[in-house]
Amino acid sequence: MNKASLHQQVISQLETLQATARGAAQTAYEAATDEANIAENKYDTLGLEASYLATGQARRAEELRHTLGIWKQLVLRPFDPDVGIQLGALICLADSQDRQQWLFLGPEGAAMKLHHEGHSVQVIGPQSPLGRALQGKGCGDEVEVQVGQARQYYQVLRVD
């Protein structure tokens, strides 16, 4: 799989999410400031609710802007077995039933599932349980992750 193309797909998805959040914030702001939503009595809270929504949407748009900036700065490097899995790694794992899954380890804030070159790829961050367990590992290594009450085991099959 082409890691650079996958990286660009994540950035494109984040840009779309940010544009949607900005549009939602603008719509909520317009509703909050519309003359028709001026409170007529203390029980008329439509304008106040729209104001809260606009604030939340603006905050989400800012978070996405920040995440997008971090992802744009991510430098993709080839896998170095001496260092192990790091940010920017594309990883193929097998679980205890030999089911394979592809993961792309990137900076925080972009957990998403993408379809790339005929594969489903889960984007995870370094602070996720699996992201933490994978860092520093290499091909053939096993990782163990506690998910709720269950313990899951994986083997690293491939790292790019």
Rank of each mutant, 00 (worst) to 15 (best):
N37H: 04
E35T: 14
I85M: 04
L68P: 00
A21R: 03
S96N: 15
A36E: 13
D82I: 12
A89F: 12
Y52I: 15
A39Q: 00
E62C: 11
Q97D: 15
V83W: 04
F79C: 12
D95E: 11
L87A: 03
E63D: 08
F79R: 12
E35Q: 14
Q86Y: 15
L64P: 00
L46C: 12
D98W: 12
N41G: 02
Y43W: 15
D95R: 11
R22S: 13
W71Q: 02
A32F: 00
A39D: 01
L64V: 05
A31D: 03
Q57H: 09
A54Y: 02
A61I: 00
N41Q: 02
V83Q: 04
R77F: 10
G56M: 10
T55N: 02
R99D: 09
G88C: 02
G88I: 03
W71L: 06
Q57S: 09
E49S: 14
D82R: 13
E62M: 13
A39P: 02
D82Y: 14
K42I: 09
E62N: 11
Q57G: 00
A36T: 09
L53F: 00
V75T: 03
A94V: 02
T55D: 04
L74A: 11
A61Q: 05
S96L: 15
T67D: 11
R99I: 07
G84K: 10
L46G: 09
A32L: 04
D80T: 10
S51N: 11
G56H: 14
L76K: 04
A25F: 01
A54H: 04
P78H: 00
Y52A: 14
D98F: 07
A54F: 00
A54W: 05
A28M: 05
L87Y: 10
T27K: 08
A28F: 00
R60T: 13
L53W: 05
V75H: 11
D95V: 07
S51Q: 14
L53N: 02
Q57V: 01
I38R: 08
R59T: 08
A50C: 01
G69N: 08
R59K: 12
S96M: 15
I91M: 03
R60G: 07
V75N: 07
C92I: 11
A94R: 11
L74I: 12
V83L: 05
H66C: 07
Q73D: 05
A21P: 00
R65K: 03
P81K: 07
Q100K: 14
P81V: 01
E62G: 14
G56Q: 13
I91L: 05
E35G: 09
T33D: 10
Q100G: 10
E35V: 07
L90C: 10
A31E: 06
R22E: 12
I91W: 03
E40S: 12
S51W: 14
S51R: 15
T45L: 12
G56W: 15
T33G: 08
P78C: 01
T33R: 13
R60N: 12
K42S: 11
Y52G: 08
T45E: 06
P81I: 02
E30H: 15
A54I: 05
R65Q: 01
A24T: 15
V75Q: 08
A28V: 01
L64S: 05
L48M: 11
L68S: 04
A58L: 01
E40G: 09
T67M: 10
T33M: 08
D80N: 13
I70W: 12
K42V: 07
